[in-house]
Structure formats: structure tokens, C-alpha cells
């Protein structure tokens, strides 16, 4: 990204973006935990996860990540299309 920033400002920007990515990642992680917990854990006769629950968590994480990945691609395509449209002279 060239926005006419000095080297120091560029470093400042990168630091901030890294923090943002970390935050986004933590948010996705929390959503994943909550969703898979609610979807898979239902037996409270024991305090450790059953084999069935563990398997469900595994499939849930795998499927959610595939889903997030697929939607990221659609989102990126959409953003590209939008920015091309914005640059086109009409």
C-alpha cells in the first residue's frame, strides 16, 4: 500500500494492522469455540468430554474453517468487483 507514508509511519501502520489481525483472529476463535460448544456438548453427567463430543468438535471446527474460507473467497471477489466498478468511468 503506497499512501505516501514515511518509513516510521509505515512501521506504525504495520504494528496497528498486526494488532487488528490478532483481534480479528481472537474473535473468530471465540465464535468457533462458542458455536462448536453449543452445537456439540450436551451431556453434563460427566466433566470430561465424551468420545462423541470430541469427534463432533473436530468435525465442527473443520467444517467451520472450510466455511469461513469459502466465504472469505466470495467476500474478496465481491470487494474486487466493487472496487473495479468504482474505478470505471461511466
Amino acid at each position: 500500500m503506497d499512501m505516501g507514508l514515511s518509513a516510521a509511519e509505515q512501521r506504525e501502520l504495520e504494528g496497528r494492522l498486526q494488532k487488528r489481525q490478532m483481534k480479528d483472529f481472537m474473535g473468530l476463535f471465540s465464535n468457533l469455540v462458542d458455536h462448536c460448544f453449543v452445537s456439540c456438548v450436551d451431556d453434563f453427567t460427566s466433566k470430561s468430554l465424551s468420545t462423541r463430543e470430541t469427534g463432533c468438535i473436530q468435525r465442527c471446527v473443520q467444517k467451520q474453517m472450510a466455511q469461513s474460507q469459502r466465504l472469505s473467497e466470495r467476500f474478496a471477489e465481491h470487494n474486487t468487483a466493487m472496487s473495479q466498478q468504482a474505478q470505471q468511468p461511466r
Binding site: 470430561s48 471446527v61 474453517m65
Partner: peptide
């Protein structure tokens, strides 16, 4: 509630392991 908390912490751990593997 006690068991739910224990399982919630386990799921946290499990999910972070799975994401690292992935």
C-alpha cells in the same frame, strides 16, 4: 454448571490445538 465450565475449558484447548494443526 461446574461440569459445563470444565467442558468449556476443554473445548477451548481442543479448538486451539485443532487450529494449530490445521
Amino acid at each position: 454448571l461446574d461440569r459445563c465450565a470444565a467442558k468449556f475449558f476443554d473445548v477451548h484447548l481442543k479448538v486451539s490445538e485443532l487450529m494449530q494443526q490445521e
